[in-house]
Amino acid sequence: MNCVLQNSEERVYSLETGVQFLNAGLQVIRGDTVAVLGEVNLEKEKSIDFDKVKANQLPPIFSNTH
């Protein structure tokens, strides 16, 4: 289930500041690290002010190998 992502951006969530966007361009993600994959509703995204979104990063899920 490996993925190729084009024009990808990484979103870093924190409790103090709003969401930070890091541009990651073209990347290949290994399938066994993926938890959820989904199609984004771009209109909904436009209505959200990401500067005000404050939350903890989602805790990682450790599989049996790592």
Binding site: M1, V34, V36, N41, K44, A55, N56, L58
Partner: peptide, 25 residues
């Protein structure tokens, strides 16, 4: 039409139209 149960605490996925969830997770 996935909905996150606690969108305030976990807002990361609230904008998804559909989702694929890996069984191992």
């Amino acid at each position: 039409d996935p909905e996150v149960s606690d969108p305030v605490k976990q807002p990361q996925l609230i904008t998804l139209k559909n989702s694929f969830i890996r069984g191992s997770t």
